[in-house]
């Protein structure tokens, strides 16, 4: 059994495998598949509770993963300032090389779940080597809808 504690390394290999065998689009297709077909729990929480649902989802996952982050939760605004991403930390310690576009997966996974519920969402990679990034979500203004 591949342990869940070894998952990050395994998924990193999957990204590399798909890219090397089938090209970058195959990796993107996989990320879109995860977003559309696997992250139903995040989708349901955002649909029901908006930014509070985002808080519940990421508070649970980031605490279990041992992340170093700051979370901002307001009714119309949600942000995660990731100071040290736990996944990047693991990958930087080996045993295999980190997929060059590893951090990009968050940009494909989360905005496409959040935005249909009246929000604008973006993930900015600040430092891919250190695992620093920012997920920023704001409710769209009426004029933007």
């Amino acid at each position: 059994m591949i342990s869940c504690t070894e998952f990050i390394w395994t998924y990193n290999e999957l990204f590399k495998f798909l890219h090397e065998q089938y090209g970058k689009q195959a990796v993107i297709d996989f990320w879109i598949g995860i977003s559309d077909d696997f992250l139903g729990n995040l989708n349901a929480l955002v649909a029901e509770k908006g930014t509070q649902g985002m808080y519940e989802y990421w508070n649970h996952t980031l605490e279990e993963e041992g992340a170093d982050y700051t979370m901002t939760v307001e009714e119309d605004h949600f942000a995660i300032d990731m100071h040290r991403c736990p996944s990047v930390g693991l990958l930087n310690r080996g045993p295999s090389s980190k997929y060059a576009d590893y951090c990009e997966h968050c940009q494909w996974l989360y905005p496409r779940i959040i935005e249909p519920y009246g929000f604008e969402a973006r993930c900015d990679i600040i430092d891919a080597d250190q695992g620093a990034c920012r997920l920023s979500v704001r409710r769209k203004s009426e004029s933007a809808n």
Partner: peptide, 29 residues
């Protein structure tokens, strides 16, 4: 493994792992 010092157990990763295996199996054989 490298993370022996501090272990974070996030079991939902098993579901993601299973999704990844199925994706490769279905799409590429």
């Amino acid at each position: 493994m490298a993370q022996r010092e501090k272990v974070n157990v996030h079991k939902d990763f098993h579901g993601a792992m299973s999704y990844g295996i199925q994706h490769v199996y279905e799409r590429y054989g």
